[in-house]
Design a protein around this nucleic acid. Structure first.
Length: 287
DNA sequence: AGGGTAACCTGTATGC
DNA sequence: TGCATACAGGTTACCC
């Protein structure tokens, strides 16, 4: 479910509601949500309890809380993960997998990790200094900077993409080239730039690649401003509220609806175990 | 090395 | 109602 804008919305929600709180209790309802954690669930709880939530970091779709100079708690939401901040004794949420009891002074709250499909996870990890000098979890050293990071190198990404023969969509989704883009924002970026999703990266001019990557950044930023994209119960911010970017979608999930530019019906094609949405007229394949 | 595909899971919507 | 199928905001392991 969550791509960069949704994860950033969650991050901001945590900053607003639980920054400076300390973890006093850990409850694990489903161990499968710790699948990327190296130690046992007990060791996880032991290490996390007592620690202070001093800051919330993000790269692409990965979120982490530094716990010391060399350790952190990483959260990845997978396809269906949510983080909700609830009052103590709030009604139960479906598919809650992990609960962190947090408090500051007299104020006590719960940070609930919800995940229907179990593709997401929370796990403890070591922090290392990445190539750009930023401290990141070891497990994400292969994840490239996202377009919203100050170290993001547009020229480098354009060069990489221009050397690849894979389709532009799979390159935009490749988190080792640039991170944060998922199926929604890839389809939206390609619609905005009138690009067919199967066009090989090497067949697109550098000038146009530059426009495509810059457009992806604009789309991500606008979606962050709208609080992300929600079309069902699967994505909510930390308060359980929906984001509004779904109202701005031009292609993703718009199958059969008129293209906002030319009125041709948006088509969905099965692609790589998922779907690709595009306008067959505005986004013709290069012949 | 790079590209494509299947696998990991659960829940909901749709059609017969 | 019951059953089968399709589909869902991601990542990774494993083929070629």
């Amino acid at each position: 479910m969550p791509e960069l804008p949704e994860v950033e919305t969650v991050r901001r929600g945590l900053v607003a509601h639980v920054e400076g709180f300390s973890i006093h209790k850990v409850e694990i309802f489903d161990k499968r949500s710790l699948k990327r954690n190296l130690g046992s669930p007990k060791a996880f709880a032991r290490e996390v309890e007592g620690l202070r939530l001093s800051s919330f970091e993000r790269r692409g779709k990965f979120l982490w809380i530094p716990l010391s100079d060399s350790r952190c708690l990483v959260t990845h939401l997978g396809m269906s993960g949510q983080v909700l901040v609830r009052n103590q004794n709030s009604p139960e949420d479906k598919c809650e997998r992990i609960r962190l009891g947090v408090s500051r002074g007299k104020k006590t709250l719960e940070v609930r990790f919800i995940d229907q499909r179990l593709f997401g996870a929370m796990y403890l990890d070591d922090l290392v200094t990445g190539s750009d000098g930023r401290k990141i979890p070891v497990s994400i050293t292969h994840i490239a900077p996202d377009p919203l990071e100050s170290t993001f190198d547009l020229g480098e990404v354009v060069t990489t993409v221009s050397r690849r023969s894979a389709g532009i969509k799979s390159l935009l989704l490749n988190q080792e080239i640039l991170s944060g883009i998922g199926n929604i924002y890839a389809d939206e970026t390609l619609w905005l730039t009138r690009t067919h999703y199967l066009t090989p990266g090497s067949e697109i001019s550098k000038k146009k690649l530059r426009v495509i990557i810059e457009t992806s950044k604009t789309v991500l930023l606008e979606a962050v401003e709208q609080g992300g994209t929600s079309f069902d119960e699967q994505y909510k911010n930390v308060n359980g509220e929906s984001g509004y970017f779904s109202q701005s979608l031009n292609a993703y999930g718009q199958t059969g609806l008129p293209c906002p530019r030319c009125q041709t019906r948006i088509r969905r094609e099965a692609w790589s175990n998922r779907g690709s949405h595009f306008c067959p007229r505005c986004q013709r394949p290069k012949r």
